[in-house]
Write a protein that binds this DNA or RNA. Sequence first.
DNA 1: CCGTCTTTGTGCACGCGTTCACAAAGACAT
DNA 2: ATGTCTTTGTGAACGCGTGCACAAAGACGG
Lengths: 252, 252
Amino acid sequence: MATGRTHRPATRSRGIPEATVARLPLYLRALTALSERSVPTVSSEELAAAAGVNSAKLRKDFSYLGSYGTRGVGYDVEYLVYQISRELGLTQDWPVVIVGIGNLGAALANYGGFASRGFRVAALIDADPAMAGKPVAGIPVQHTDDLEKIIEDNGVSIGVIATPAGAAQQVCDRLVAAGVTSILNFAPTVLSVPEGVDVRKVDLSIELQILAFHEQRKAGEEALPDGLPAAAAATESADQGPDGDVPAVMPA
Amino acid sequence: MATGRTHRPATRSRGIPEATVARLPLYLRALTALSERSVPTVSSEELAAAAGVNSAKLRKDFSYLGSYGTRGVGYDVEYLVYQISRELGLTQDWPVVIVGIGNLGAALANYGGFASRGFRVAALIDADPAMAGKPVAGIPVQHTDDLEKIIEDNGVSIGVIATPAGAAQQVCDRLVAAGVTSILNFAPTVLSVPEGVDVRKVDLSIELQILAFHEQRKAGEEALPDGLPAAAAATESADQGPDGDVPAVMPA
DNA sequence: CCGTCTTTGTGCACGCGTTCACAAAGACAT
DNA sequence: ATGTCTTTGTGAACGCGTGCACAAAGACGG
């Protein structure tokens, strides 16, 4: 169900806040860069700057993992890289399938950031028979008919959906039925999945719309001296609505 | 110093919560679908289901925009589409440039979700001279040398960065210097921008890492003697990432 | 015009996430 | 050893977002 809001039983020792989990990859990237430069240790202040976050937040995040720092010195880079990698489950191999090999699917197949972090593209799947056998990023595209077999043969538990919106739910259902329990969805649709299946979505147009909102606000504030209370009349109907409150002045 | 003071006293009268703004595009999509089916009105319950959120949350979100519903009936679909579009700033044209026309950049150029929402790809820019003039998605690629001129000539305020990580900051600086005030960053790097510039980032590998974390936890709980038979030992379900909102503006 | 029924709009409480501020811990010099 | 100095780890306060539950608003039928 789409409304699958759930409570976190707060697994005692293992309860790492979701917000922290989302930042761990960020820290890992910064640490990897330091590691490549052979930097032995790093302070929370320095690492926080590199990751673009507040240092107190970083320390609290790390505190959920354990006490891996040394007071007066900082954190051992190599050790921390290992600990975070382990926590994120990147020390093991994650076979991944990408369904929908259009422009985006092909881009994902070619994306280098996957392989370097334990993610292995096990298969590329597309519904177009003409694509079958054609290699993309060195991997031959397979037909959707074999989806279930591919999932099972490779022990895939993570699937990436890059199909058109119309096909997404159907593909999702088949992936889940075949054993996939984590899905990264690029299709602009709300996916319905049974409990126990994680879905994360990336919607390019949504990100742009959020930027547009802020952009519009910036333009409005700039053009206007200062927002006056603006009685929310809002009685205007569509069609040439003469701005209820926020004068959508838009310079071309 | 380290404290990223990005919060200006603004957000006074017209303060729509960031979390709400992030959901508006979601509602808009669901409403557009209803509009195409010529559905005249919709209740908060129905719309919430279509958008994959809680109905109370949806009503509260709309309440920030104004009282656009009719008790006992619901919301007028067309009217709401207009109101949300206006609020998001989608009633105007937003010229966008995409920098870095590799696999991902090309995919973005071809992405249909942009044009349908007021975003117009004004130009494609790449550093490779061999790409210059070559049409991608019907638009000729231009060379990075002309970046500033392109931005100014087209009045571009939103830029999309799809370059390799190494080039991202430099491209970002040039975009900002040329007048861009909103950036959608696909490069796996933390961008430094001056105050007043919004950055949203989309990192494919980070999303996968977050999934891997939950996947590992699922496997672990399953393998271990389940300490708590708690009915809802429940892992998250349908957890659509509200992902970070505003980007870290780090001080130089 | 009045009663009933549906659905909105929101006051309120709760929990998560962020930030501050500081005591504790350890390195390092003397 | 002892003192000083740096940096971690965290208790506590605060603010935001979420969800419940209900009163107010309006449609609709009689």
